[in-house]
Simulated assay, not measured.
Amino acid sequence: MSEIWLVRHGETEWSRSGRHTGRTDLPLTPDGEAAAAVLGPALASTSFAQVLTSPRRRAHDTARLAGFSDAVVDDDLVEWDYGDYEGMTTTEIRESVPGWTIWTHPCPGGESAQEVADRLDRVVGRAREVDGNTLVFAHGHSLPALAARWLDQPVEEGRLFRLGTATTSVLGEYHEAPVMMRWNSPVT
């Protein structure tokens, strides 16, 4: 039984302040770098047939600091494209769109839920094709969306899976059914 391990990148200035960070390529904060380095020993006891990372600096740097500098960049792992809402907080968006969430409303100038699902389905396919575990470094909305797709759910069901920075989650199978084995586990 193969597993897919999900790691959200370490803290950035915008993740700390709740700003939607899709295309903006921010570095990790010093705290984010320290948390990424702690991930390495926690992940070292598991073998991975493939290690993938979003091309965004924050995810790629988290992979490198965790000891996976050879992670393969996978453009399908980028964060949700927030379009006109890039850099805004949910509170700011709700001033003009009451009740807005990424899971229930569109992002003008950004990606639709279906576009996100299509690219994350390709990641799920690659993880299921490999003989062994897959390790993925990505983002706070793309990873819950990926989990939803692994579980054969609409991408919008990612709304149920809150994910902190520098945490690990594990998806697998039980009796040939996709399951969540662990979610949002901090590494200390």
Rank of each mutant, 00 (worst) to 15 (best):
E157V: 01
D31Y: 02
L151P: 02
A44V: 01
R162D: 13
D81P: 05
T46G: 01
A35Q: 13
A59L: 09
S169G: 13
T29Y: 04
H105C: 14
A138T: 01
L135V: 05
L6V: 04
P154A: 10
Q50Y: 05
W14Y: 11
P30G: 15
T165K: 05
V78M: 12
D74R: 01
D118I: 01
E95A: 15
S185L: 05
W150N: 13
R19P: 01
R19H: 11
R159S: 15
P106Q: 07
S54Y: 09
T46Q: 15
R122P: 01
A63V: 07
S2M: 03
E13P: 00
A113K: 03
R122H: 10
S54N: 10
A49S: 14
G99I: 03
T167E: 07
P41K: 12
G32Y: 02
R128W: 01
P108Y: 11
G125H: 08
T12P: 06
H9M: 06
E157A: 11
M88V: 00
W150H: 11
D25Q: 10
T46Y: 12
V7I: 14
W103R: 00
P41F: 09
H141A: 14
G125D: 14
T12S: 11
G32D: 11
S15A: 09
A147L: 08
Q114R: 06
G164D: 15
D76W: 04
F161C: 03
D74A: 14
D31G: 08
T91P: 00
A71N: 08
V124T: 12
G140N: 05
V73I: 14
V73A: 13
G18P: 03
E156H: 08
G125W: 00
H139N: 07
S142Q: 04
S185K: 01
I102S: 15
V130H: 12
T188P: 15
E92R: 10
R149K: 05
D25L: 09
T12M: 09
V130D: 12
D118S: 13
E33I: 03
S96I: 03
G125F: 00
A147Q: 06
H9D: 10
T29R: 02
A145E: 05
W103L: 00
A66W: 09
L143G: 13
W103Q: 03
T90M: 12
A36E: 02
L39S: 08
M181V: 13
R122M: 05
Y174E: 15
E79D: 08
E176H: 12
N133C: 09
T21I: 06
G172Y: 02
M88N: 07
H175R: 11
A49F: 06
A35L: 11
V187P: 05
R149H: 02
E86F: 06
G10C: 07
R64Y: 05
L146W: 07
A127G: 12
R64K: 13
V7S: 11
A37V: 00
T62M: 12
E129S: 15
D61Y: 02
Y85E: 08
V187R: 08
L171V: 06
G83P: 02
W100S: 11
Q114S: 14
T89Q: 11
R182Y: 02
F48Q: 11
A117C: 06
L163W: 04
T12C: 10
A166M: 00
D74L: 11
H60G: 11
R56P: 00
H175Y: 04
